[in-house]
Simulated scan of single mutants.
Amino acid sequence: MRNLVALPDDPPYLDRYVAIRDKKHKTTRKNLTAVHALIEERYLAYAEAIDKSSLASIKSHAPALLVGDTLRACYDGATQPLKKLKQAIKDAQPKRLLKYCPMCGTTLPGTFDHYMPAVKFPEFSVHPLNLVPCCAKCNSTKDADWLSVAGRRQFLHTYTDPVPDLQFVNVTFQEILGFKGVGANFSLVRPIGVVDEFWNLISSHFQRLKLIERYDELGNDEVAEILQDCRIHLDSGGQDIRGFLRGRAKDRCDVYGRNHWIAVLMDSMARDVNLDKWVRVA
């Protein structure tokens, strides 16, 4: 799990909105132009909330909701400037990072999520910091339910919430009866030094998206593949399977973050006293 790179505000985010607006049909464009001052004001509010780490304090804006359908049309219609914006967001990311959804780390991010839901905040429907590349499962699970009943954010903002460089995803292994394989069970463990507010956000993100359950579902097959790769490494004349596996884990960690579930899995397997036995019978 690693933060996405925010698209630079150059050209300004508002200019990107204007470029999209100006490619809409005449009536829509006219209506959007009429509320330009509202959009400008709300973009400033978004920037201030990001600076103060207070996104949850932004409330739905009644004047924006009144023209919500028109504002959402900026995203719903496939204009060239919108395609350019989406591509710019993807191009801003380091190579390989978007091989996995940044919200779950398990699947290809084939959609964009509106972090602040477009149905409640239509004025941010094409704001670059409000468009998060993600998979369809995370997108549909999150939907418009971004705040808890208590008004707290339930999901990490992958552009601006600083994910700590501390391991909080852990894994344990069990040999399946008769050694028919190795099972992996993941868990979330709070590291020392993470404050309550941010730990609650991380926990909520994992719980709402059922990430531990997803990792457990995928873990056994991934363990089998890793062991097979180790076996191939040895059969090809390679040695030191622990070093081989640590190297692969570090590569994953460097690209996807310390808490990417496969990086955690590889690193933990490299440290396990049973690795050599597992590889021999794989």
Score class of each variant (00 low, 15 high):
3 N>D: 02
3 N>W: 12
3 N>A: 03
12 P>T: 13
16 R>C: 06
19 A>T: 03
20 I>F: 06
21 R>G: 15
28 T>K: 05
28 T>W: 08
29 R>S: 15
31 N>D: 09
32 L>R: 05
34 A>N: 10
40 E>D: 04
45 A>V: 04
45 A>M: 04
47 A>F: 05
50 I>W: 03
53 S>Q: 13
54 S>K: 04
56 A>F: 06
57 S>C: 04
58 I>W: 01
58 I>C: 11
61 H>V: 10
62 A>W: 07
62 A>P: 13
64 A>Y: 01
67 V>P: 04
68 G>C: 15
68 G>S: 10
71 L>C: 09
72 R>G: 00
73 A>Q: 15
75 Y>Q: 04
79 T>Q: 03
82 L>W: 00
83 K>Q: 08
83 K>P: 11
83 K>C: 12
84 K>S: 03
84 K>C: 12
87 Q>D: 04
87 Q>L: 08
88 A>I: 07
88 A>L: 13
89 I>C: 02
93 Q>E: 11
95 K>M: 06
96 R>Q: 08
96 R>H: 15
98 L>H: 07
100 Y>K: 10
103 M>T: 12
108 L>R: 13
108 L>T: 09
108 L>D: 12
112 F>K: 08
119 V>C: 13
121 F>K: 02
123 E>Y: 15
125 S>I: 06
127 H>A: 01
136 A>R: 09
145 D>Q: 08
152 R>Y: 07
153 R>C: 05
154 Q>R: 07
155 F>V: 06
155 F>D: 00
163 V>N: 10
166 L>T: 05
166 L>M: 14
175 E>C: 13
177 L>M: 13
187 S>G: 12
188 L>A: 04
190 R>A: 13
193 G>R: 01
199 W>I: 10
200 N>K: 15
201 L>E: 08
202 I>L: 02
207 Q>M: 07
207 Q>P: 11
207 Q>H: 06
208 R>Q: 15
214 R>N: 14
214 R>P: 09
214 R>V: 09
215 Y>P: 00
216 D>A: 15
220 N>Y: 15
221 D>L: 05
222 E>P: 03
222 E>D: 15
223 V>Q: 00
223 V>G: 00
224 A>I: 14
224 A>V: 11
224 A>R: 08
225 E>N: 06
226 I>N: 03
227 L>N: 04
230 C>D: 11
234 L>R: 02
235 D>R: 13
238 G>N: 12
239 Q>H: 14
241 I>F: 15
246 R>M: 15
246 R>T: 10
246 R>I: 05
255 V>N: 04
257 G>S: 02
257 G>A: 11
259 N>D: 01
260 H>N: 12
264 V>I: 14
266 M>S: 11
269 M>S: 03
272 D>H: 12
277 K>I: 10
281 V>S: 06
